[in-house]
Design a protein around this nucleic acid. Structure first.
Lengths: 150, 150
DNA sequence: CCTAGTATGACTATATATTTCATTTCATTC
DNA sequence: GAATGAAATGAAATATATAGTCATACTAGG
């Protein structure tokens, strides 16, 4: 935890930014909700619990900043708002998302398995892949079983 | 072309919708710009050339309708607006997009190669994949060469 | 041709996200 | 530890994409 704070301050300093209590508070919320995909509004509400005076604009600005620093992943699950997830840097490649078109739940796949495709893209399209986003749409186990019973 | 119109009328009829000159005009524009990824606003401007009295709301409604009928793909290239592409139904699986983070150009990969991943997802996550969206971010050939020279 | 129901266009409403600007806070120097 | 300049903040205003309302017009089918 303390490590995260020191790193955060250092990373901000490298880019000429300052560590403020608001930025710290946003980071804390993201760390405390690691597996989740929170919207800006949700993050704002959570931050306000410990930091009631923070403004929504600051949360927007902080998330924008963190996205540019690659501290967070900005996600889009087609519900009209941006969602964020902390980037742990522990995996080399990011995970994929499974979006249930029935109930809207979102699960994760840890496996990546896109290396061979990316190599092929480099060879055939001469496009150097740096990153990717993969979303799978379909039915989660619960919804599949429900539909099967009908 | 005539085929497309007849199909369109039939498909609309199946769902209790009517074929109007506005809907036809939007379809025509999409057919005339097949390889492109047009935004709603761009489609509106193109439709207005032959159909100057059409309203923007109608274009929005028509694209929403076509998306629900799976006549178009709704795309998101992170520029804050929805883009559309006609769905030709000729391929079993859709193509992927290569987005250059330098110049913003978007190319396509015809290969899919996600079958084995989808099988694995079914086995391990018990999630039945119906569709997917894959975006690769990186550098196109031009931008890569430009950066190499520096 | 008439009719019922759908679609349209102009306008308004909503919701997310960004910008403005005066004030406050941070981090560095003396 | 106080002073200083730059950067960050909050409240409000603004931008922008999309959706909803409603009176009028059009479509498809008899």
């Amino acid at each position: 935890m303390q490590d995260n704070n020191i790193n955060f301050r250092e990373q901000l300093k490298e880019r000429g930014y300052k560590l403020t209590s608001q930025r710290q508070a946003v980071l804390d919320v993201l760390l405390d909700h690691e597996g989740q995909h929170l919207s800006t509004e949700e993050i704002y509400e959570l931050v306000k619990r410990k930091n009631p005076d923070i403004g929504l604009a600051t949360v927007y600005r902080t998330l924008l900043l963190m996205d540019s620093m690659e501290l967070v992943y900005k996600l889009d699950f087609d519900d009209g708002l941006s969602r964020y997830e902390i980037n742990k840097h522990t995996e080399d490649h990011r995970h994929h998302h499974l979006i249930c078109t029935q109930c809207g739940c979102v699960a994760e796949v840890e496996e990546d398995l896109l290396e061979s495709l990316e190599e092929q893209i480099l060879r055939k399209n001469k496009f150097v892949v740096k990153d990717h986003r993969v979303k799978f749409y379909g039915l989660c186990e619960k919804c599949f079983n429900k539909l099967k019973q009908l």
